[in-house]
């Protein structure tokens, strides 16, 4: 069994191949390069290095979002097309859970965070042991979410490259309960993605869609206008 893992949901590009419980190769780049341009060449190159042919793949694992809309779509499009056309199962896993896996073993809660501008983020809260979801993945005002996390009264480990952006606010709200991953543990790792995929149900290839966790601006404005009319 050979799993290919693909995470393009934010600026990092994370790829891995795992064969029968052995990590053959794993790559994480944090170079802010256009995934549409680089994801497929990187997959091609990695598989060549590992001497794995497309037909050898038995499973595809993909990070389904939230994150950059375009980034998530690129990963999903590649993963869906590979899985469907090679007739192999697809497993999609929350991009926040993939990041949370960096904090596995932490005695407390793990909070993966992806900045979404204007004081908001894509954010979730997981148990450090077992990665059970404590507060669902969501698009939220960062401060509001932190206040909810604070009520749980447990230490929280923040992970993700955008944790740095919100560090001051996190410390202000959570004080000594706030902990931060070391820098190498802030990037998504596709080996973690694959391990999570192995514990997850198979996705319906055709109907696997990005988990944006946010409606589009056009829809939000439209809904607002509709409400106005009803009132």
């Amino acid at each position: 069994m050979i799993y290919l893992g693909i995470d393009t949901s934010n600026s990092p590009l994370a790829l891995a191949l795992i064969e029968d419980g052995v990590v053959l190769i794993e790559e994480t780049a944090n170079l802010k390069i256009n995934h549409s341009l680089t994801a497929m060449p990187a997959i091609e190159e990695m598989m060549k290095k590992a001497k794995v042919l497309p037909a050898d793949l038995t499973h595809i694992a993909v990070a389904e979002g939230p994150g950059s809309y375009t980034g998530v779509r690129i990963g999903l499009t590649i993963a869906k097309t590979l899985a469907w056309s090679l007739k192999i199962p697809l497993h999609s896993v929350s991009s926040l859970k993939v990041l949370a896996a960096n904090g596995q073993g932490f005695d407390g809660l793990v909070c993966p965070i992806m900045d979404a501008r204007r004081g908001t983020a894509f954010i979730g809260l997981y148990e450090g042991t077992g990665l059970k979801s404590v507060l669902a993945d969501q698009h939220s005002d960062v401060k509001e979410f932190l206040l909810k996390a604070k009520e749980l009264g447990r230490p929280v480990l923040f992970t993700g490259i955008d944790a740095a952006l919100h560090e001051a606010l996190i410390v202000e709200v959570l004080g000594r309960a706030a902990h931060f991953s070391s820098i190498q543990n802030r990037l998504p790792r596709a080996s973690n993605l694959i391990l999570l995929a192995q514990q997850s149900e198979e996705s319906d290839v055709h109907h696997a869609v990005p988990e944006y966790r946010r409606i589009t601006e056009a829809e939000a404005n439209y809904n607002k206008a509709q409400e106005g009319q009803i009132l």
Binding site: S36, A39, M40, I43, E44, P54, I74, T77, I78, A79, K80, T81, L82, S85, L86
Partner: peptide
């Protein structure tokens, strides 16, 4: 483009 690339690569 990405679907076409993945399809062409797979086969």
């Amino acid at each position: 483009v990405n679907a076409a690339k993945a399809f062409a690569f797979a086969h």
